[in-house]
Amino acid sequence: MNIFRITGDLSHLISIFILLHKMRTSKSCIGISFKSQVLYLIVYVTRYLDLLWTFQHSAYNSLMKIIFIASSAYTIHLMLNDFKPTHDPNIDTFKVEYLIGGSAILALLFPYKWTTAEVLWSFSIWLESVAILPQLFMLQRTGEAETITTHYIFALGAYRALYIPNWLYRYFTESFTDPISTIAGIIQTILYSDFFYIYYTKY
């Protein structure tokens, strides 16, 4: 565990709290892409299936995995029930089929091992790298986003961006390599880069 990894994870946690706080205080999910949220739930469920057999390996990892799955499911629950009237499907129109299909193809072609768990893990890594696209697309369509939504996207993007120095650090200190995560993480950070640029110039 290094400073980049822990800061990245904290950034991810913060993004979740920002999102839930925004929805609960404004009693709405305006500006939040339901499609992106569903993609994130798929990402966490397919990646953290290993909770079933690695639960005892790391209390930290297991706790975080449970938080990510639970908060993601809770977010979707809120969007489907409490705040459903504030969700406008007409502006949340990104074609996620391509993201899911593309991630599935990459996962099937280049997993570390052709086992169900490894293919699903790889699928989740690729899908996470593009899961923000419906949200960014929606942001672009609606123009101005609420400040709080902007902070949410920033914190979520910072999480994976911070993993990049973490992988570099781990490569030099423990010869750790994880090409799938690294390539997908770089793609993910590139997708956020335009947003990051606007964020920095604005705040």
Partner: peptide, 10 residues
């Protein structure tokens, strides 16, 4: 590397 148990990140 690659076995599920080696995925020690989130």
């Amino acid at each position: 590397k690659g076995h599920p148990e080696t995925h020690d990140e989130l």
